Amino acid sequence: MVTVNNVLDGVILKLSQTFPVATIYEEEIKQGLIEPCFFVKLFPVAQDKEFGRRYKRYHTFDVHYFPLSKDSANEDMHNVAEKLYDVLEWISGPHHGSKMNHEIVDGVLHFFVSYDFHVMRPKQDYPKMQTLTKEGFIKNG
């Protein structure tokens, strides 16, 4: 069964493989930010029931990128975004990224990606009926 942590770990693994010199934070950054770095923010995970034991689960991420230098920072952030479109298309699982887009706000790159997939709940075991006693009669007209 796929968990939220599996998907989060898949995103972090791809970032660390692609950008080995960047620090990756998965928790809120309090202080002491070491640039260049990524901050992986997971939006609330959602799940919809589809049919029977089948559900659709939605994992949406906002990957923040803080560039090393303020000189040519926009160019650097757009280059990082181009790489993110490629490397976050598939993460371990394999899970396919969708709804990808990016923007730069206040000198920080925000790259959005969703991993939406179906999950199947385990089949519940119900006790089998041991015996059946049938009583009844046929009514004559």
Rank of each mutant, 00 (worst) to 15 (best):
M1D: 03
M1H: 10
V2S: 11
V2F: 11
V4W: 04
V4S: 15
V4H: 06
N5R: 07
V7E: 07
V7G: 01
L8G: 00
L8W: 01
L8S: 10
L8F: 02
G10V: 08
G10E: 11
V11I: 12
I12A: 13
L15M: 09
T18V: 06
V21T: 15
V21I: 15
A22H: 07
T23D: 07
I24A: 10
E26T: 11
E27Y: 06
K30N: 13
K30M: 13
Q31C: 00
L33V: 15
P36H: 01
F38K: 04
F39Q: 15
V40W: 05
V40G: 06
L42F: 08
P44F: 07
P44W: 10
V45T: 15
V45G: 02
A46K: 15
Q47V: 13
Q47M: 15
D48F: 07
K49C: 02
K49L: 13
E50T: 13
E50Q: 15
F51E: 12
R53Y: 10
Y55C: 02
K56D: 05
R57H: 00
Y58D: 09
H59S: 08
T60A: 14
F61G: 07
F61L: 09
Y65P: 05
F66P: 05
P67G: 03
S69V: 03
A73I: 03
N74Y: 13
E75A: 10
D76T: 15
M77A: 06
M77Y: 09
N79R: 11
V80R: 01
A81K: 04
V87E: 05
E89N: 14
W90Q: 08
W90F: 13
I91P: 01
S92Q: 12
H96K: 08
H96D: 00
H96N: 01
G97C: 03
G97R: 00
S98M: 10
K99H: 04
K99N: 13
N101T: 03
E103I: 01
I104L: 05
I104K: 00
V105M: 04
V105K: 14
D106F: 01
G107W: 04
H110R: 05
H110F: 02
F111G: 00
F112K: 12
V113G: 01
V113C: 04
V113H: 04
V113K: 01
S114V: 03
H118M: 09
M120I: 14
M120H: 11
P122L: 04
P122F: 04
P122T: 02
Q124T: 02
K128F: 06
M129L: 14
T131E: 15
T133F: 11
T133E: 14
E135W: 10
E135Y: 10
G136R: 01
I138W: 07
N140C: 02
